[in-house]
Amino acid sequence: MSQEEAMERRLKLFRSELKVINVGLETFYKDLARQGVKVVHVRWSPPPKLEKELEEALDKLL
């Protein structure tokens, strides 16, 4: 991507209607919805600890 294209992408955000995906604290989702922002919420929870440790162990092995 050229610098000019990158800049255009940033400026496009300022010109566009916000469409938001909220991940984590639900209160931010509610506050955005209250302001009339189009928003969806992702109910996030941490991946199970054991899996993460296993994953890391596997990463090391592979």
């Binding site: 496009k12 955000l13 566009s16 916000l18 469409k19 938001v20 995906i21 909220n22 991940v23 984590g24 931010f28 955005l32 189009k38 928003v39 969806v40 919420h41 992702v42 109910r43």
Partner: peptide, 20 residues
């Protein structure tokens, strides 16, 4: 409008321009 993964939220709102 509630999802359990980032992927499914992105699918439902393909023109999302901001993630919080």
């Amino acid at each position: 409008e509630e999802y359990y993964s980032v992927e499914s939220a992105l699918e439902s709102m393909p023109d999302a321009n901001l993630a919080v």
